Amino acid sequence: MQQRLTPATAVLLTISPLLWAGNAVTGRLMAGQVPPMTLNFLRWAIAFVLLLPSTAWLLRPGSPLWPRWRRFTVLGLLGVGCYNALQYLALKTSTPLNVTLVAASMPAWMLGFGVLFFGQRLTLRHVVGALLSIAGVLVVLSRGDWDVLLQVRLVPGDFFVLVATAAWALYSWLLVRPGDPAEIRGDWAAFLAAQMVFGVAWSGLFAAGEWAAAPQHIAWGWPVLLALTYIAIGPAIVAYRCWGLGVQRAGPNIASFFSNLTPLFAAVLSTAFLGEAPRAFHAIAFALIVGGIVVTSRRA
């Protein structure tokens, strides 16, 4: 696995957080208009249809996808079915800024999974970078008041996004495992669509459970249609493409720290579209998160 961060790779790993920050803001705007699990299903169903003209060969009986269906079922569950659905669910009780800041715990999840399951060697700068990012998470969870941590009162959204972050960390490690058919691995659209084949099924199952559990409704209109178009093209297709390339080039550990740029972009977008201005403790959290990126990205 190549562990080198080039300017081009840094750009790729920056585009994804920017689009995902927009996804968090959009999810907040859609709260109350589209149920969270349904929003996730519609997003990926649209993205799959957009990719289908160039990836329809994956669905043929002799496709190399089917012998590897177990792997892509897991990737689809973690990256498509779980991560975004849990994020949209979290946004019902939390703000985009808080959701993205809590997700800054990803380096800790990434390091933990890497050491436990993927033979990753733990280095001092990875540990220091992870501790800085975790400190940023603690700052936002405490709202800048450390006494709050003693009470340990997390809103449901905080829990959902922590589970989502763990799922994404495992998904990112699985991305770099060898053994995928060359026809799929060598075609980015096919690789993403292979995950969507099963991911759309997972997200559809979760959406069906959502409608079966309680009455739901969708407030159809131009805002919903525009939101679906954005989250299907930007945070889904473009961001996943950039993230997959970035992870393959720089490795999961370094890439995970770039994901912590999402709160920076979420703060700006939340101020612009939601009127949720950052507070002083958010600035402290930002500084800690960026410090984690700098420390981890430095060459030994």
Score class of each variant (00 low, 15 high):
residue 214 A to W: 08
residue 176 V to M: 11
residue 250 A to K: 10
residue 264 L to E: 04
residue 226 L to H: 02
residue 231 I to S: 04
residue 186 G to P: 07
residue 194 A to H: 02
residue 204 G to C: 06
residue 196 M to N: 07
residue 211 W to Q: 09
residue 243 W to E: 07
residue 178 P to T: 14
residue 180 D to K: 09
residue 197 V to R: 11
residue 226 L to P: 00
residue 185 R to L: 10
residue 239 A to N: 07
residue 220 W to E: 06
residue 175 L to Q: 15
residue 239 A to G: 10
residue 230 Y to E: 00
residue 221 G to Y: 10
residue 204 G to E: 00
residue 206 F to K: 06
residue 246 G to P: 11
residue 178 P to I: 13
residue 209 G to M: 10
residue 270 S to R: 03
residue 260 N to C: 10
residue 193 A to V: 08
residue 228 L to S: 02
residue 223 P to K: 05
residue 200 V to T: 14
residue 222 W to D: 00
residue 175 L to H: 05
residue 206 F to M: 08
residue 262 T to R: 09
residue 215 P to N: 01
residue 275 G to A: 11
residue 214 A to I: 02
residue 191 F to M: 11
residue 184 I to R: 10
residue 270 S to Y: 07
residue 213 A to E: 01
residue 269 L to Q: 13
residue 201 A to W: 08
residue 246 G to K: 06
residue 229 T to L: 12
residue 240 Y to E: 03
residue 204 G to L: 02
residue 268 V to H: 03
residue 261 L to P: 03
residue 268 V to T: 06
residue 264 L to P: 06
residue 208 A to R: 10
residue 276 E to F: 12
residue 271 T to F: 04
residue 192 L to D: 04
residue 215 P to K: 00
residue 241 R to K: 11
residue 274 L to Q: 12
residue 206 F to W: 14
residue 233 I to L: 14
residue 219 A to V: 15
residue 200 V to C: 14
residue 218 I to R: 02
residue 178 P to Y: 12
residue 267 A to E: 00
residue 264 L to T: 08
residue 228 L to T: 04
residue 252 P to N: 09
residue 209 G to W: 12
residue 215 P to I: 00
residue 251 G to C: 04
residue 262 T to V: 12
residue 177 R to S: 13
residue 239 A to W: 12
residue 223 P to R: 03
residue 263 P to A: 07
residue 247 V to A: 05
residue 209 G to Y: 09
residue 184 I to D: 03
residue 198 F to T: 15
residue 208 A to E: 05
residue 188 W to N: 02
residue 221 G to I: 07
residue 254 I to D: 07
residue 218 I to M: 01
residue 261 L to H: 02
residue 227 A to E: 01
residue 225 L to E: 00
residue 254 I to S: 13
residue 268 V to Q: 00
residue 195 Q to F: 05
residue 234 G to V: 07
residue 179 G to Y: 12
residue 192 L to C: 01
residue 204 G to K: 04
residue 274 L to C: 15
residue 184 I to H: 01
residue 261 L to V: 00
residue 209 G to I: 11
residue 260 N to T: 06
residue 250 A to N: 09
residue 257 F to I: 06
residue 254 I to G: 03
residue 249 R to T: 04
residue 185 R to F: 03
residue 271 T to R: 06
residue 182 A to E: 12
residue 252 P to A: 15
residue 213 A to K: 01
residue 179 G to W: 14
residue 226 L to G: 05
